[in-house]
Amino acid sequence: MTTAATTHHSAVLEHRDRFRPRQAAGKGHVSVRNVDIVFDTHHGPHTAVQGAQLEIQPGEFVCLLGPSGCGKSTLMNVVAGFVKPRHGELLVDGQPVAGPGPDRGMVFQQHSLFPWKTVKDNVAFGPLMAGVGPREAESVSRTFLSLVGLSGYADAYPSTLSGGMQQRVGIARALANYPSVLLMDEPFGALDAQTRTMMQENLLEIWSEFRNTVLFVTHDIDEAIFLSDRIVVMSASPGRIIADIRVKLERPRQAELLTSPAFMALKRECLALIREQTLHAFEQQNRKH
């Protein structure tokens, strides 16, 4: 176990030091300050997210949990730089976010690989865009493909891979850029339950080598508890942050944890808190009207 780990780890670090030396540890502080996200629709302005406040420390694994339509993906898109907030401020490592950038890697729900590029070229794309030479980019790509266990598929096209494998390529592609923040938008949402659990375990193993900041959007409470250090709960219409729960489960975590008493107790606690906060949010809402 340790030998393979050492190989991966040294290879990963070697590449990082060569083409992104400034991406040292301690980066990846995300600061969401009073963010309102408003979309102009045919029926007038629609508030997707209201007054979002969130501080994420470097190296924290944070899950944004909420029902569909609560604006959790929208909030993530603001961090990614795809969407501009109407009000408020968004800082990553003290710098305001002006648009998408390679410091914030993104893993999408599905179908986000370039179908005309081989698996290897998909992963090499980020390093190439960072100005690394083709040979170095390919070497980075191979390192990351072995990290996600897909070395044998380097020359395959994405469409010949299963959904789970495609998502692992997506993770490798995002990580190959050494982002200080990894954004994951329901990356396992389209997978079957069995594959999903495996992917979650796999993700934690990979992450243990990077320890970068992760912001992970999900509507699955088990997934949120299993993965994260912190669960930020959102409620719908308008999307608001209603709870911030610390998950004090030891790492490394394995799938067995999902059925352990500690996990169950925590889940019960979370559900109770979410219910309470949801009711509270509704009351506040009603009082306003």
């Binding site: 780990a5 266990g149 299963s162 494998m165 193993e205 490394p252």
Partner: peptide
Amino acid sequence: MSVKPGPFQASSAVVPSSTG
């Protein structure tokens, strides 16, 4: 820690491409 490739490799279902 090494990554376990085993169980994933087995699941090589096909996703139809939307480009067709």
